[in-house]
Design a protein around this nucleic acid. Structure first.
Lengths: 118, 118
DNA sequence: CCAATTGTTCAATAACTTTTGAACTAAGGA
DNA sequence: TCCTTAGTTCAAAAGTTATTGAACAATTGG
């Protein structure tokens, strides 16, 4: 955790909702939820937006307290702050993700289930 | 139902989240939820914003499918579209309202529990 | 009919958000 | 050391949303 993150009780409902109310960011969150536990780096999301623009959206998610970004070498490992969100807003994340999974208008990311390990 | 409303399946998740991501509108929704079943007219919310601005926010809520506005005489009766929202996004509204109720930074409306009946 | 009440519309402005490209930093490998 | 990879920062431009006041429409009560 190198970059500034809000503490759990600093996470604000309207800000979280506004941040999730953007299709690009909602897609990122949905993908992080599907791959929970596996930290993602930004390049996973390059099909959603340009590198610069992703940097912007990922900063918004981090500043809202939705994700955690850890600097590791030249990468950022991004994870969902599920525990914190569940503590602060019980049930919210689950219902948002469930709703997002059923929304075919959201841009998909990582739908090709190819995992080249080692 | 006089004014244009989206049908249940036209309700979009990012739009609902974005619309709820505004403190004024979130307060309106929270209040409607507390008084569920009792249709409200716009004047109930005049402590949140100016008449003109309320008209704008209430239109946003209606267009997103969050509320229903029915013209009755010179008033608009506003209700939460709970059934439709629950059908479309199960659990979402409940968790948002529960979270909003626990948020002391949201502008309060109708906290004085005075009910002068008849 | 007249006036009051309720809310809308319109145009302007202010305030934010998103997107972009170019320039940059920092780490890691050859 | 030099090059590549991964991502940031900055300033500008584009787009969107929120707020305002003045003018309007429709209903209702006197």
């Amino acid at each position: 955790m190198t970059l500034p993150h809000p503490t759990t009780d600093q996470i604000s409902l309207p800000i979280v909702l506004a941040v999730l109310g953007d299709p690009t960011r909602l897609s990122i969150v949905r993908y992080l939820a599907r791959k929970e536990g596996v930290p993602m780096n930004c390049s996973k999301f390059l099909d959603l937006a340009s590198k610069t623009n992703l940097s912007y959206h990922l900063a918004k998610l981090r500043e809202a307290g939705v994700t955690r970004s850890e600097a590791v070498g030249t990468s950022r490992l991004i994870t969902l702050r599920r525990d914190d969100l569940d503590k602060r807003f019980p049930g919210l994340l689950d219902s948002v993700i469930a709703a997002a999974d059923g929304d075919k208008d959201l841009p998909a990311v990582g739908t090709a289930e190819v995992e080249v390990s080692a």
